[in-house]
Nucleic acid binder design. Structure first.
Lengths: 346, 346
DNA sequence: AGATGTGACTTAAACGTTTAAGTAAAACCA
DNA sequence: TGGTTTTACTTAAACGTTTAAGTCACATCT
């Protein structure tokens, strides 16, 4: 009934535990004969090394922890996939925690991952408060942290971001090139006074820049706000359509809201893109599946996950003196039917 | 630079490590004065107990491991959410691993979770081979295992399943009640000779039963096969429509394929449900978001996750002598626009 | 007053590994 | 041949906790 340990293997194969350890860890000094005897004992007893004991002794976990703000969001799961693959290749494991949009939960997960002695941390989306992270980083020793799509103003954390301003600019340019002239924008929540001059908030700026450049109107008359969730996209759309001048195209700050907007348009009997063109942001998998397929700015999701791994690995290798990096990725325009000029689409 | 341990706290507060341990674990015999002194030292040093050391000593991890066949599949992430919440409430942690449909990966994850000494295992979907699991369970001691939506023929693993036959029956009955008479079925992959008489494979049987009962045709003329993926749903739909007699409704074995079928119908200019009604299975979140919203059999996803936790907890409490259970859940019909009789919808 | 009990700790072993340091035999060299 | 090096191990301490067993001062009982 008892668990089989390295001692049992040592006893059965008639060698010391150190030798068994050497065989298990593929040290080069063991003779073939001894190695074979030990391996036989390992197989016969079904011995598996205890990672907990090993971690305690070696002071490494060969694992990293990740906290994601919403594990049911396809955008994040793609990132996780990329991260998970990269780790897998190196034989590292991933402890994944879902914060479900609740900061207390995210903070609790952070604490537990630290106690678990992971070798590094990945924070995906807005799941951990800056204050909590900061108080951890102030400790005498801490593991490297990299954040994805979350911009921390902390010197020790690396941030992997997407250039939202540029993405929004490209998306809007695309609509302009398709010949649309009244291009509205459905934004995320109102950013707090100057505090969030990063990430998704910058999409507004990109939209403005493209319109200004083309001499098109870009004032608040053409701007509506949502919460990044599906339902809010639908109501923002209805809001826009109720205004004096109807837009002929809408750029939406993320795909979930774009889908909501699409739903509202369907309900009102308006056709996409004939009556109104639509461009989203993120390129979640469903974007290609709806009718019509949604034009969107593709986030390099898997690459973000993989890059998080690479950066973390480098930091771990560099030891406590690592220097955090800040990397910006570009979003790519994926043209689908929802944004094609009526003349082309028809 | 060094990590702060229980010894540092003991030294600073002038007590033994045993006392610090007692304070941290809220033993009741410590005086208020001592407790305060220790807590102050803990706060001042920023001490966090090392879970690895604790696990090694206590022989528990206060964590369970889960292996999911595809972390990007919304169906599974909902289950994970349920599991994760339940664990959270008990202060237990979740180690989540993504097998990405690759059995070698799933098996490797199984091995590593075992080495990590988790208190229990949850296997979600088809991610771990029966042989691998069996060889683990043959070991002298093992932790409890519960599988969700995967039917293992192993006496020590608990299985949480959904009654697919019944679900398919209900879905088909619904179409019959709406007045449809030529009800086709898009199934999953052909089940291997007699081997998969469980799970999703049983949906064919439920469809047949409902049709037979109503005296409607249910032979292979009305059956097409896919692979449970989006694209295969589209081609299966095209296949069905190319046959001599066109169906007026289609029941699809899962939502992803149903969405694919929907896409094919849009392409061909056919209207849903007017020209052809559609019912899916799973109720993934997008099902409600497409146009028209998809009628489907809702899987109790969160409940499955929560139930996995409950069963696991019971098994852990029962110790090595636990008796595995087999529980079947019902899928609920969720009626949306895609299946409403033309007369009602119009 | 002496025995007994209780409260508030401390001591030290243990959990299952890894690994630096030690050792004994064999191989090599002059 | 005698000394040195190499090979193939073994010994034992350490990692950071928990916890059973021990201790010692003090209160309580008869």
């Amino acid at each position: 009934m008892a668990k089989v340990t390295i001692k049992d293997v040592a006893a059965r194969s008639g060698v010391s535990v150190a030798t068994v350890s050497a065989v298990v860890n593929e040290a080069d000094w063991v003779t073939d004969a001894t190695r074979a005897r030990v391996q036989r004992a390992v197989a016969e007893l079904g011995y598996r090394p205890n990672r907990v004991a090993r971690s305690l002794k070696t002071q490494r976990a060969d694992a990293v922890g990740a906290i994601v703000s919403d594990v049911t969001n396809p955008f994040f799961t793609e990132i996780i996939r990329g991260l998970s693959h990269a780790l897998q290749e190196r034989g590292r494991n991933l402890f994944l925690c879902d914060a479900d949009h609740r900061f207390e939960l995210g903070d609790a997960h952070l604490e537990m991952l630290i106690e678990q002695q992971v070798d590094g941390l990945v924070i995906i989306g807005d799941s951990v408060r800056e204050a909590s992270l900061q108080s951890y980083l102030r400790r005498r020793s801490h593991v490297p942290v990299v954040a994805i799509e979350r911009d921390y103003d902390l010197p020790d954390v690396s941030c992997l971001l997407v250039d939202s301003e540029q993405g929004a600019y490209v998306a809007t340019r695309h609509l302009i090139e398709q010949g649309f002239e009244r291009i509205a924008y459905i934004a995320g929540p109102q950013e707090g006074a100057g505090s969030l001059t990063y990430g998704r908030a910058m999409r507004t700026a990109g939209w403005r820049r493209a319109l200004a450049e083309a001499g098109l109107p870009n004032d608040d008359e053409w701007l509506a706000r949502g919460t990044f969730r599906y339902e809010s996209g639908a109501s923002a759309m209805r809001d826009l359509l109720s205004r004096p001048v109807r837009p002929d195209a809408v750029f939406v700050a993320n795909d979930m809201m774009a889908l909501g907007a699409m739903h509202a348009l369907h309900e009102m009997g308006l056709r996409i893109p004939d009556d109104l063109a639509l461009v989203g942001f993120d390129d979640i998998p469903v974007a290609a599946l709806v009718a019509p397929p949604l034009t969107t700015m593709a986030m390099p999701k898997r690459r973000l996950g993989r890059a998080a791994h690479d950066v973390l690995r480098a930091h771990i290798a560099d030891g406590p003196g690592y220097t955090a990096v800040r990397r910006t990725f570009e979003a790519d325009l994926v043209v689908r039917a929802s944004s094609l000029a009526a003349t082309l689409a028809g």
